[in-house]
Amino acid sequence: MSTATLTARVVCILRDMLARPSGAIGLTLVGLHLVIAVTSPWIAPFDYTEMNATMTLSGPSAEHWLGTDHLGRDVFSRMLLGGREALLITGIATPVALLWGGFLGVFLGLRGGWLDEVLMRVVDAFLALPGILPLLVLITVFGSGGEVLMPTLAFFFGIPVIRVARAAAHEVVARDFISAARARGHRPLDIVRRELMPNVTDTLLVEGAMRWSWMLLGFSALSFLGFGVAPPRPDWGLMVSDARVYMSLAPWGVIAPVIALSTLIIGINLTADALAKTLGLDQSRKAVV
């Protein structure tokens, strides 16, 4: 597909998504978060380290819109800044996970045979490992910088993508247009590129949006447990964890990051939902007549 047709298609999909309520709300939320993440260093009223020892755990006021935390730092500013790291790391790790998982999955789906059999067992084994455990172990050993988190997240979140991509490839390969291309004698790589991938990428796009939200959930859980972003840098998970202790005195400290995190994840989910419906991958949708 040429760049022009690709752009046209992206525009077409976006327009279709915006026409749905879920897509409009979802894209707006995600867009808003991205804008804030990029601009927050300039628009945040306070520096995230700036402490006001005379005003700890204060409620909302004209100066501090959402009050201050236990060290007297401005909650509103920290809320604006708190998604930057999460968005940056997951924003890079998600496409990487999607790419390597997707390629390996499609490859295995097409190749089949013993390699497929063996690698799928390994995938099963990895999926059996409890939740964020492998992440925790790696982080405790190597530290929690972005250079560790990003590849680790990309690796572990890519594994379930293998399964999805493989199943999607299996489904498409069984269709007659692949047989038709084979019978004409196209090279296997051309068939994959031209006939197979356009049909698999739709599934992968939706899968990618879902993975992104799960990765954000995982990332914030790591921060919450103290294995993610290192203080004093602001992060929503860490903010909840810190403010939790003073919850009865200053609920805003918890509620602000919670709202920020939840709106982002809900936004991504709504976007994924609208994307699935736009691309016609929604299972529950049935034609009327």
């Binding site: 269709r175 038709a180 019978a183 004409r184 049909n199």
Partner: peptide, 17 residues
């Protein structure tokens, strides 16, 4: 291969959507 072409039963399946 060129000399031998096949047309399938169901065009929904044999044309890439």
């Amino acid at each position: 291969l060129r000399r031998l072409q096949i047309v399938f039963q169901n065009p929904d399946a044999s044309l890439n959507p």
